[in-house]
Nucleic acid binder design. Sequence first.
DNA 1: CGCCAGGTTGTTG
DNA 2: CAACAACATGGC
Length: 239
Amino acid sequence: MKNTKIHTIYTTLLDYFGYQNWWPIVDNNTSLYLPEFRTRQRTPAEIFEIAVGAILTQNTNWQNVEKALINLKTDSVLNIETVRDIETERLAGLIKPSGYFNQKAKKLKLFVEFIDGELHGDIMSLRDFDIDTARKMLLSVWGIGKETADSILLYGYYFPIFVVDAYTRRIFLRAGIVDKAMEYDNIQGIFEDNLPVDSLIYREYHALIVKLGVECCRKKSLCENCILREKSLCSIEAK
DNA sequence: CGCCAGGTTGTTG
DNA sequence: CAACAACATGGC
């Protein structure tokens, strides 16, 4: 059975916040969110940057990730060849602002090993696998879990796969649509079963969820500002 | 100063 | 299998 609330919340957030144009690309020391990202295919360089950003943003705010990406770009390190050749210690130093820098440096190295090995150096070739295979391939890489894999697949390659993150859990827990014990794939299924199979909708919806999470649905919620509460789509008491 | 951020992995009961 | 620890920086 269809849960129309899932789609209603999407259109409500889109009306209120507008298109988010994710995933950002860093240029001239700022993150760019361009309308063209909604329609045009990503270039190999962009896909690599999106994947690096997805790894660096694990449990880390974007502001810190942006600093790390700026460091990488400034030193011309944000490409497969250079990440392959750079010393792990120097890579870790460049991404220090994003936190967990030793682990993340290792993750970036292993991701490039994956591209070299499984994809024969061609990052675009992941597109040619079916969605389940591509996901399993990414999940086999140490340091890439479900959210990171799905972010790469959705925002890099436009595979129609819904990204579930901490904000998704929190917002839809508070809205009474998911429960605390629900697992990642289960929550993902709720969205995919109640929305058109459409990469653009999945991309914008997840970005809008993050927008609402940052602006209103924080750990200490700011319900007085929340459009979902205003539209009676979420009924928790403000605390 | 304490809290927290667009998670993942490893360990323990 | 669930709960918990480890990983770490910078902004508010």
